[in-house]
Write a protein that binds this DNA or RNA. Structure first.
Lengths: 337, 337
DNA sequence: ACCTTTCGTTGAAACCTTTCAATCCAAGGA
DNA sequence: TCCTTGGATTGAAAGGTTTCAACGAAAGGT
């Protein structure tokens, strides 16, 4: 394997011009059957593989989409990715997944690389939706759609779920169950989703006329199982009369960690503490005590985002739109006794 | 945004030749500071972005690595991916993740696309490690390393964990705990990992002199939480004296599903059924009853695979090697009562 | 004052594919 | 027999970058 063979090599071996080889590749109907067979045989003999870089260079665009996600280990995002993947496959495009791992430096590196690659479009769940880096990407000619976030101006297409409403649903549910002292567990508050869910929680709390200091905010460093466990220690370490009777976690991973922490401490859910999660990932319903959670249409999110990015890429009359889906509360044992 | 600007445009605006622009990009030290400043200003003015296709075309290779994984929703693979990502980042390469979703057709599509892209190397956890498609990829000049599988011949580098030993460890542990009737839960047996783990289990069973029919094999359709739940129903539906006292699941997702099924049926773990999982994913220790599991060095797997693929790409004297890591049993409450 | 280095810059070639106008040839019509 | 038509094939150009031999000018040495 010295050097990959090119159309030129194939042309030489088949005794045709390289234009003909290209025709076999791209418009086989314009080539006579015999010639075509000969060229195809030559390709097989030489193990010819199209050089996508050259093809792209000529075509000016690639046949790939990319989804830059916040955390590949969070099932929520992989579910969204699944939706993107299906839609991309249907459109005949490949999808590359890039994991920014919540680090904006890595996000930027990926975005830069993708723009240089001239991918057909980028879907991104950004660390910071307001970041000017996103505007740069589009200025450089690559369509971008924001997933699971909304930018405050309407210069981007975005597909999101109403997180404020989600937070509201969770807390209203807890209030209905009679809780009057509730913990909100989540963080860091640089994450927009966390802020919005808390905001919704606070509004629902105020609307119910409950005193603000009885909605305790417990801040975590990340939205992970491990953080959920440590938050659990903090919550249950509160003095008896300050301790909440229910917790609303900013995502299911936190909720699962919290649940775990409680059961190792011999506390019962929802007896000692009721728990509401967020995202309704598969593990939520599969937990020891099935979790009440706020469900988002994950695959649908991915599918819709893909449609938007393709429209932005292909349709000269494209107008940006912000799609907002409605979340839904799924009540399970962790709040229902 | 009519057309992305090229080095030529930058050169014109800065009043230099395009060779100089390229030098600014690639060997800035060879350009005088004033010229460099002028060129850099021109780049900013025009919003110049390097065209990676053209660069690759010239260079013959890209600055990307790809990992084609079996199931992006399985935390085991995303952990491996994390290891790959770190190593790739250290080497100054970008990593694209491709999810084959256990479908060989999709795996093939991705592989073909990646070869056409001339990526620098491909890591793959294949649906079928013996598939000739993998040999095709390398024949076409792209280094390939097999992750978490081993090919029977030694024509590929691979990084894997000794699954047979893992199966053995799991079952030996159960035997030590006094179990003499055990279920192996896993499938489909087209998955090599499942076959090997079962094989190890059988050998340990035979070595202990236990009758083969007391190691019951329960076949699942996939390695998912949902399948674990349905396997649970089947296992517990067995007649009293055929029912096992312990189960060894081919991965943690199955084990979590099984655990869930048992606790909704009001059965206790390990009282009614002891459970051993496999992979030791984060959720295993975070489960309601912390799971005993067989741990694999996931990130290390990814890191090592990356080193191998880079060696294959850069080192003309590269020799293929099969790295096999040793798994480790982590005993927790699900088997320790 | 002249020759040699050294440094900075240049221009052209090469990478591989696709496209398109131009050419060729055979068949059919007049 | 000559002309037309249509299909098949060709050859050259274009796309953006990198590399490299070659060039010019300025600096250093004698």
């Amino acid at each position: 394997m010295v050097r990959a063979s090119s159309v030129k090599d194939v042309a030489a071996r088949a005794g045709v011009s390289l234009g003909t080889v290209s025709n076999v590749l791209n418009r086989p109907d314009r080539v006579s059957p015999e010639t075509r067979a000969r060229v195809e045989q030559a390709m097989r003999d030489l193990g010819f593989v199209r050089n996508e870089s050259a093809r792209q260079l000529r075509a000016g665009r690639s046949r790939t989409l990319a989804y830059v996600l916040l955390d590949a280990r969070n099932p929520f995002f992989t579910d969204v990715a699944e939706g993107v993947e299906r839609a991309a496959e249907a459109a005949g495009l490949s999808l590359f997944l890039c994991n920014s791992d919540n680090r904006s430096s890595r996000e930027q590196d990926y975005l830069a690389h993708l723009v240089e690659q001239r991918v057909q479009g980028i879907l991104v769940t950004p660390v910071d939706a307001q970041s000017p880096a996103l505007a740069d990407v589009r200025r450089n000619g690559t369509p971008v759609v924001i997933v699971d976030r909304t930018r405050s101006d309407d210069t981007f297409c975005s597909v999101a779920v109403d997180d404020e409403l989600g937070g509201r649903l969770a807390v209203e549910h807890l209030i209905e169950q009679g809780h009057t002292r509730v913990a909100f567990i989540g963080g860091p508050d640089t994450i927009g989703q966390v802020r919005d869910r808390l905001e919704g929680a606070r509004k629902a709390w105020a609307d119910a006329g409950l005193p603000p200091e009885q909605l305790v905010v417990v801040t975590t460093e990340a939205l992970t199982v491990v953080e959920g466990r440590s938050a659990g220690e903090r919550v249950m370490g509160l003095g008896r009369n300050r301790r909440p009777t229910a917790a609303f976690c900013a995502n299911d991973l936190l909720a699962l960690g919290l649940l775990q922490q409680l059961s190792t401490s011999g506390l019962s859910v929802p007896g000692d503490l009721a728990i509401v999660g967020y995202d309704d990932i598969e593990y939520a319903s599969a937990a020891a005590v099935p979790l009440t959670s706020v469900r988002q249409p994950r695959q649908e999110l991915g599918r819709r985002a893909t449609e938007l990015v393709l429209d932005e890429a292909d349709n000269p009359e494209h107008v940006h739109q912000q799609v907002v889906f409605t979340p839904e509360l799924v009540a399970r044992r962790s709040t229902l006794g």
